[in-house]
Computed example of a mutant assay.
Amino acid sequence: MTQPLPPITAPQSRAGRALVGWSVADLAEASGFAAGEIERFEAEADDLPVECPRAIRAALEANGVLFLPEMGGEGIGVRLKFPRQTVRRIQTWEDEGGTPGEDDIA
């Protein structure tokens, strides 16, 4: 059984969206949570279910965002797994339809 993804922070969500060029509506569609819940999470509301930031994380990671843990005195971070051009190509491929394959990129 796989462990659930650790939740992310509101700034990480905003930064991840910015990296892939998503609006709140785009993230809502990809995560399965309503746009209002995404906005409340990113405004740092504390009464949302823990599944909300986990779903946000999963949606962003599936689209090329990598969340970096705090390490060696450096704060948490967000970056793209791939160069921006590769992320755009992946998004284009996924929008073309067909059966998606398993993503084994770590």
Results as ranks from 00 to 15, higher is better:
Ser31Met: 13
Glu102Asn: 01
Met1Tyr: 11
Ala28Asp: 01
Gly64Thr: 10
Val20Phe: 02
Thr9Met: 04
Ser13Cys: 15
Gly98Phe: 10
Cys52Lys: 00
Val50Asp: 14
Pro4Leu: 13
Val24Gly: 07
Leu80Ala: 10
Gly32Ile: 05
Leu66Cys: 08
Glu70Phe: 04
Ala59Val: 09
Arg88His: 09
Ala62Asp: 09
Asp95Val: 05
Leu68Ala: 13
Leu68Asn: 13
Thr92Gln: 15
Ala15Thr: 06
Leu66Pro: 03
Ala43Leu: 11
Ile105Tyr: 15
Val78His: 04
Gly101Ala: 15
Ala10Gly: 11
Val24His: 06
Pro4Trp: 12
Arg84Ile: 13
Arg14Ile: 10
Ile76Ser: 15
Pro6Lys: 14
Ala55Asp: 08
Pro100Met: 03
Asp26Ala: 09
Leu19Gly: 02
Gly73Leu: 04
Phe67Tyr: 09
Gly77Phe: 03
Ile8Gly: 08
Glu39Lys: 02
Gly73Asp: 11
Arg17Gly: 07
Arg84His: 12
Gly101Asp: 12
Trp22Gly: 05
Ile8Thr: 11
Gly98Arg: 07
Cys52Tyr: 04
Ala35Asn: 00
Gly77Trp: 02
Gly72Trp: 11
Gly64Ile: 08
Trp22Tyr: 00
Val20Trp: 02
Asp95Ser: 15
Ile38Asp: 00
Pro11Phe: 08
Phe33Pro: 07
Glu70Pro: 00
Gly72Val: 01
Arg54His: 02
Ala43Phe: 07
Phe33Arg: 05
Asp104Val: 04
Ala30Ile: 06
Ala59Gly: 02
Thr99Ile: 15
Glu39Arg: 07
Thr2Met: 13
Ala35Gln: 06
Gly21Met: 00
Gly98Pro: 05
Glu94Asn: 14
Leu60Gln: 04
Gly64Gln: 03
Gly72His: 12
Pro7Met: 11
Trp93Asp: 13
Ser23Ile: 01
Asn63Gly: 09
Gly21Arg: 06
Gly16Lys: 05
Leu66Ala: 15
Ala58Gln: 15
Glu74Tyr: 09
Glu96Leu: 15
Arg40Ile: 00
Pro4Gln: 13
Trp22Gln: 01
Glu94Thr: 14
Val87Met: 00
Leu5Ser: 12
